[in-house]
Amino acid sequence: MTTSTKKRLTTSAMIASFADEGQRTTSAPFGHALAGLAEQRPEIVGLSADLAKYTDMHVFREAYPDRFYQMGMAEQAMLGTAAGMAEVGLLPFASTYSVFATRRAYDFLCLDIAEPGLNVNVVGGLPGLTTGYGPSHQATEDLAILRGMPGLTIVDPCDSVDIEQAVPELADTSGPTYLRLLRGSVPTVLDEYDYRFRLGEAAELRGGRDVLMISTGLMTMRALQAAQELASDNVDVAVLHVPTIKPLDREAILREVAGDRLVMTLENHAVVGGLAESVASCLAFAGAGKRIVPIGLPDEFLAAGALPTLHDRYGLSASAIAARTREELA
């Protein structure tokens, strides 16, 4: 049964959203994008490690029950199974929480999937600080863990638009991919810009003479909000969205950092091993000495609590970003 013949499914009410009150959102964009693509791609299969409802894979499960595989709480087995499926011509999307895909099942992702270059798409929910559950579920170091894996494509989408457009491109990528999933009621932001997701390419969403914010994931939304707030202070902020962490669009970064603007990086990840260090190494290897102000999560296990409180505490909210920018410009 296809998605066109069913009522559009929503996400679980138990999933907290990082969306602001009154903000436009789209429910379960990944699940609907995958189910829609599967209508044209019969080789697509979905797997879950007992978390379909909480990674929006339940939408695909309801549309294509005979192509969905519930693997239970066995992430290593799930990735090993996905590798076998890819070997025989199927196109797996395997979903679980990021902490389990990276910390628990790293060896299977590396040797069963990446080393032979199989087209397995790993979908990791709760990346960075998108849950208040605490260190057991906060994947604050998943990019640092995975960036060194040869041949792995890593995508950190900003919003529902990014996710919907990224899914078919990930399916068309010949090797393994890792998607930092924004689940549930996901903000819809990028449709207000002349934007199209293109794998491996960064996109300038707005220009600005004073500050350049290089951002990825949900922090691009925060960067755009901070830029609007700073405009009231006559601070002109450019935002360069980097949805693909690997391969990194080095040409765009080197082009944008030229000049004397304040350069900041924004990521929903620890400052160790993520976007900030990727940008810093890009500049260093090119001989382009430039000071970078990193905005990200600290190198520590984070507290549990409500998401708005945690985002304020750790400097990820738009107001905190604007305040930090003013301090740097003072």
Rank of each mutant, 00 (worst) to 15 (best):
L90Y: 12
L34G: 05
T11S: 15
V211F: 01
I321V: 12
L310T: 06
D236W: 09
M73Q: 10
N121C: 09
A303S: 08
G117V: 05
L199P: 02
M57L: 15
C158H: 06
D107E: 14
A171K: 00
A52V: 00
A318C: 00
H58D: 06
V161N: 08
P157G: 06
Y54C: 09
D194V: 02
M14E: 15
A318K: 05
Y54W: 15
Y195A: 07
A86T: 01
S278H: 00
R209G: 01
A258T: 10
I321H: 03
G200F: 06
G125C: 06
A101T: 12
R180P: 00
G296V: 15
L129P: 10
L254A: 02
A144H: 11
A101I: 11
C110M: 15
V189E: 02
T10P: 04
G296T: 07
D20E: 13
S95E: 12
G80C: 07
A63V: 08
T102W: 07
A74K: 08
V272S: 08
G274L: 12
I113A: 03
L302A: 02
T26W: 04
V122H: 11
A280N: 05
G175V: 01
H137W: 13
G151K: 01
E75T: 12
D56K: 08
M71E: 05
R255T: 09
V161T: 15
A306P: 11
T10C: 12
M71Y: 06
T81I: 04
S27K: 07
G207R: 04
I15R: 11
I292E: 02
T130V: 10
H241C: 07
V161S: 03
M14Q: 14
